[in-house]
């Protein structure tokens, strides 16, 4: 974990509200970054917004990191105006990340732009010749991201939208349930999920009901990112844990919803 100034390589709009920003990292950092880890980025020098914002690693490459974000407020709006060559104040990599001793088969579940860190995870699986099944759920067709990237990595991708504008109409958890109750499910399988809280809760419940190991990446408002402020608490069976330091990836059955 380091605090460093990074040059923006590119910052491109990939959907109406979604962007991919790529920045240079200090030597050898990007190689060591684990899927599921995140960086805290201060979007300007002013006190508005005051704190840096956490962004999970979408792709880690040769001395560069990509983050995929959606404009949800002032900080991400400012971030979306950054141009190649601009300098960002960054802290990271932070958090534990998904397990790296990966073995298949795997099911990946992403909700909205929560699918972003699953791409780096799928890359790790691809390196081990594991082709995960991926379920992506979003509100509409416009909110579907990463599906092409995941297919390129050899994943079997299924899309579902709440309005039926792309893929099946409904919720991602319905597809997940069909899959894990289906006949051709290879076991032992592990579920990896990232997305909105209600989705993670539903995925966690399904995993528990069908006794499937499940790792979820959580989000919470945070200040420090390193475990000093104790702000990003999440309730677990073992008491409060910090999303920034103990997470963001947790065993779903540990979480008290």
């Amino acid at each position: 974990m380091k605090q460093f100034y990074a040059k923006v390589i590119s910052n491109q709009r990939i959907a109406p509200d979604h962007f991919i920003l790529s920045f240079k990292t200090p030597h050898a950092m990007a190689k060591k970054v684990k899927p599921g880890q995140f960086f805290k980025i201060k979007v300007n020098n002013s006190s508005k917004p005051l704190l840096g914002r956490p962004f999970s690693v979408h792709k880690a490459g040769n001395n560069k990191i990509e983050i995929l974000y959606k404009i949800v407020g002032e900080a991400t709006r400012i971030l979306s105006t950054k141009k190649s060559g601009n300098i960002l104040d960054i802290l990271g990599p932070l958090g534990n990340g998904f397990d790296t001793g990966l073995s298949g088969p795997a099911i990946l579940v992403g909700g909205g732009h929560g699918v972003a860190p699953l791409v780096e995870l799928a890359k790790k699986f691809a390196n081990h010749n594991i082709k995960p099944v991926v379920f992506i759920g979003a509100r509409t067709k416009k909110h579907i991201v990463c599906d092409k990237d995941l297919r390129k990595l050899g994943a079997q991708v299924h899309v579902v939208t709440e309005d039926g504008s792309k893929g099946r109409k409904g919720l991602v958890t319905e597809l997940l349930k069909n899959k894990i109750t289906g006949k051709n499910l290879k076991k032992p399988v592990t579920i990896y999920a990232c997305g909105p809280k209600p989705m993670l809760m539903a995925v966690g419940k399904l995993a528990k009901d069908y006794k499937i190991p499940c790792r979820i990446s959580l989000e919470e408002y945070m200040a420090c990112g390193i475990g000093t402020c104790l702000g990003c608490a999440v309730k677990t069976r073992g008491g409060y844990k910090m999303v920034c330091k103990d997470g963001p990836v947790f065993d779903a059955k540990e979480i008290v919803w």
Binding site: Y221, G231, Y240
Partner: peptide
């Protein structure tokens, strides 16, 4: 134990 989340707001 501390207070229930969210514990932080800007």
């Amino acid at each position: 134990e501390g207070n229930p989340p969210p514990r932080i707001a800007e």
